[in-house]
Design a protein around this nucleic acid. Structure first.
Lengths: 130, 130
DNA sequence: GATACCGCTATCCTTTTGGAAAGTAGTATC
DNA sequence: GATACTACTTTCCAAAAGGATAGCGGTATC
């Protein structure tokens, strides 16, 4: 079967492209993945997430949490304590992202190593050049 | 060894997060992945890419191609024909993205199926409700 | 009644991203 | 010398994303 490469019909390409776009669509923006990773150690409250992420403003955090809830990556739970307690926790569905996130992490790691090596090489070349 | 979950130190989380961010950084924007997928069938010329992608303007295409070239995902080759011919082709390094793209595609596909099923369910529930 | 805490929302503003339209450089043909 | 072709670049503009700052509603404590 030497013809694996020939499966690139225009339709299948578009299907593939749309699937990739769908995936990136729900992970887009500056905060989606940081949020998901932050919640992987267990549920957190609104203010705890804010502290954990550092510089996110409440407006943005609120919007991102709503987006993630709509995509069923997390659940919002309200407890009638005083003052009220609201927690956000990852759903079982969010675990389906594991392989995607793993591959992004693996690729990102080796890409960064590659960049560092290039910089070293550039530096050596400069030394030689001067 | 039942403590796999306990490996979530703050430092390792940040390392993971940064790696994921690095990966998404080079794939960001509306056109990076469409471009890479378009070139997977072989090199294309500037105008061919434009036609293939449909609605991209020359300014954006030029910028995106430069970004991808900087990241060493593709090579720009100039042929001294008349008029000049310029082709863009994927590098060997771009193949390192294969697993990332595969996982995005797989996840995107099942996510879309899931959304379609939800819509069907919602429709049935509306029918029952009226 | 003033103050404090939580979980937000509202308003306004800046930055980033993407795009429309026109123009340019080099070469060749009529 | 006008026109055409490829591969862009330039200028100007609109939309989207992100952020700073202030405020609100509910509850409790002093």
């Amino acid at each position: 079967m030497p013809f694996k490469k020939e499966q690139h019909s225009k339709e299948s390409c578009n299907t593939h492209l749309n699937a990739v776009k769908d995936a990136l669509y729900v992970l887009n923006g500056k905060w989606k993945l940081p949020l998901i990773l932050a919640l992987q150690n267990g549920p957190l409250r609104f203010n705890e997430i804010q502290k954990s992420l550092g510089e996110i403003t409440p407006k943005i955090l609120s919007k991102e949490l709503k987006d993630l809830e709509l995509n069923e990556f997390l659940n919002r739970k309200v407890f009638s304590t005083t003052p009220v307690t609201v927690t956000y926790e990852l759903t079982a569905y969010s675990a389906s992202l594991e392989r995607v996130i793993d591959e992004l992490r693996i690729w990102g790691t080796q890409h960064r190593e590659r960049l560092v090596n290039h910089r070293k090489t550039d530096y050596r070349m400069q030394e030689v050049a001067t």
